[in-house]
């Protein structure tokens, strides 16, 4: 039997908002240590790697390892039916065909129950090598979201260049160019700080379309971490409260 409970459904609602535009379906791997998802978009340009630790749940039980194929669209519809303060419980039997979502509203004697059919999935799983990145940048997630939105108006790609001086985002198109530069802040660890750990300067271009999907995770946490090395995929990481993280990988654009 599998059972996972969160007293506030808000976090799970935000998680679904962060993946629903990128993924149509995904396998949720449930083990004693938590829930893991690794899934690529249909074009294999980006990948979502998500981890929700069992100790982050208010109640967690997983007697047997389960691989549950879920429609992200349906799961998102179900979670829209919960209010942010509702307690959410996910439950499945061993070898399940369905997963159950239950919402309890505090102080009310109302329980809503939704059952979702699982799907058989034949998903490609990728081995992601441990990488030491040339630049690791931490910056306010809202600032990052704003830059991605603003620059997307001027071109299809955003070029990210990182040096000791700071990080520069640029876009260029038929109508002109746009550049936003951020310097490292004096203090670190604050929600509005910008920190740069650099071994080597980098310059890479990425599709705005995907970066706009990633910034849907902004409500999850105040800081985003960008890991960059020349000619390898970008990692864009958001913490999911105290319970886990979501990492987006994005393949770079390369000169023809």
């Amino acid at each position: 039997m599998f059972e996972a409970r969160l007293t506030q459904s808000a976090i799970l609602k935000k998680v679904l908002d962060a993946i629903k535009d990128l993924l149509t379906e995904a396998t949720f791997e449930c083990t004693d240590s938590g829930i893991q998802v690794q899934a690529m978009d249909n074009a294999h340009v980006s990948l979502v790697s998500m981890n929700l630790r069992s100790d982050g749940f208010d109640k967690y039980r997983c007697d047997r390892n389960l691989s549950m194929g879920m429609s992200i669209a349906v799961m998102s519809k179900i979670l829209k039916c919960a209010t942010t303060n509702d307690t959410v419980t996910m439950r499945a039997v061993d070898n399940p065909d369905t997963i159950e979502f239950m919402f309890d509203t505090p102080g009310k004697d109302v329980q809503a129950q939704y059952e979702m059919k699982l799907i058989n999935m034949d998903q490609e799983h990728l081995g992601i090598p441990e990488t030491v990145y040339s630049c690791v940048v931490k910056m306010p997630s809202q600032e990052f979201a704003r830059i991605v939105r603003d620059l997307s108006q001027f071109g299809e790609n955003i070029t990210i260049a990182c040096t000791k001086e700071g990080i520069k985002f640029s876009a260029a198109g038929d109508t002109g160019t746009a550049n936003v530069k951020l310097a490292q802040t004096a203090d670190s660890g604050e929600s509005d700080s910008v920190t740069i750990e650099m071994q080597e300067s980098v310059k890479l271009s990425f599709s705005c379309r995907y970066l706009n999907f990633f910034i849907k995770a902004t409500p999850l946490c105040e800081q985003v971490q960008l890991s960059l090395s020349n000619d390898v995929p970008l990692v864009c990481e958001f913490n999911i409260g105290e319970i886990g993280h979501i990492k987006y990988y994005l393949a770079p654009k390369i000169e023809d």
């Binding site: 081995g127 271009s205 995929p233 990988y249 393949a251 654009k253």
Partner: peptide, 14 residues
């Protein structure tokens, strides 16, 4: 111009 790469050229299939 710029060509979009895919992740399968960077990561190995398990």
């Amino acid at each position: 111009g710029n060509k979009q790469t895919t992740l399968t050229s960077f990561f190995t299939k398990k």
